[in-house]
Amino acid sequence: MEFLSSRVILRPRDPDRSRAFYRDTLGLAVYREFPGGVVFFLGQGLLEVSGRGSGEVSPDVALWLQVRDLGRTHEELRQRGVTVLREPRREPWGLHEMWISDPDGVRIALVEVPAGHPLRTDLRHGAED
């Protein structure tokens, strides 16, 4: 089995409001637009906001978005009127995280990976030793 690409698909209750949030508030670049939806670049993945959902958002689902500078991101989002669910802090696993949500309540973790964290370790170097 071979997977060539992937994306997360959200079905918002208010598609226009959600598309505006991801495009204008978070500043995600548009990869593709089509009747009834838009696909955004999401770092190394894609986020599709399309159709219309009718159910409640599960608290078991969240988006994980890595940013370069969490302090700057926090300030920019506050200036844009985004409610911060949890202020930035260093987690026991070493990542700096803050939490927000989209207009439907989809939880979004904004994460900065600090220097020296294992996620920044180039494992190829250890393989050569």
Rank of each mutant, 00 (worst) to 15 (best):
V39W: 01
R120L: 10
A127D: 09
Q79Y: 03
L70G: 02
H117E: 10
L26R: 09
L119Y: 10
V82L: 07
D14Q: 13
E128A: 12
F3Y: 14
E87A: 13
E33A: 10
P15I: 12
E2A: 14
D24P: 01
W93L: 02
R78L: 15
P114N: 01
A20M: 10
G53E: 09
R90D: 13
R23I: 03
S18W: 07
S5N: 14
H125L: 15
F34W: 10
V8Y: 12
D129S: 12
A20L: 10
R7D: 12
D104R: 07
W99C: 01
R124A: 15
V84D: 09
P59S: 12
D104H: 09
R86A: 13
P114A: 00
E97G: 00
A109W: 00
G126Q: 14
L63F: 10
G126L: 14
L123W: 12
D69N: 11
L47G: 03
A29G: 11
D16N: 12
T83G: 03
E75P: 01
L77R: 06
A29L: 06
R17I: 09
L63E: 02
R90Y: 02
L110A: 03
S18I: 02
L28N: 07
V49Y: 03
T73E: 14
T73M: 14
A127R: 11
H117G: 08
L26A: 09
Y31A: 14
R120C: 06
P114R: 00
R19H: 04
D102N: 05
G43F: 01
S50W: 00
G105T: 09
G51L: 07
V39M: 12
D122I: 00
R7Q: 15
A62N: 07
D69M: 01
R52V: 13
L85D: 12
P92D: 09
P114W: 00
D104V: 05
P114M: 02
R19V: 14
S58E: 09
Y31E: 15
Q66N: 11
D16K: 15
Y22M: 10
D102M: 05
G116H: 01
A20T: 14
S18G: 06
Y22P: 08
T121C: 02
F40N: 01
F40P: 01
L110G: 01
D14A: 11
S50H: 08
I100G: 03
P35H: 02
R52T: 14
Y22V: 08
L4K: 12
H117Y: 05
V38G: 02
E91D: 09
T73C: 11
F41N: 13
D69K: 02
E76T: 11
R72I: 00
D102I: 03
E48D: 15
G94S: 07
I9Y: 04
R68M: 06
L85P: 00
S101V: 00
S58P: 06
F34N: 10
Y31Q: 15
E76S: 11
I9M: 12
S58N: 08
L95R: 04
R17G: 06
P92L: 04
T25N: 05
H117T: 09
W64T: 06
P15H: 08
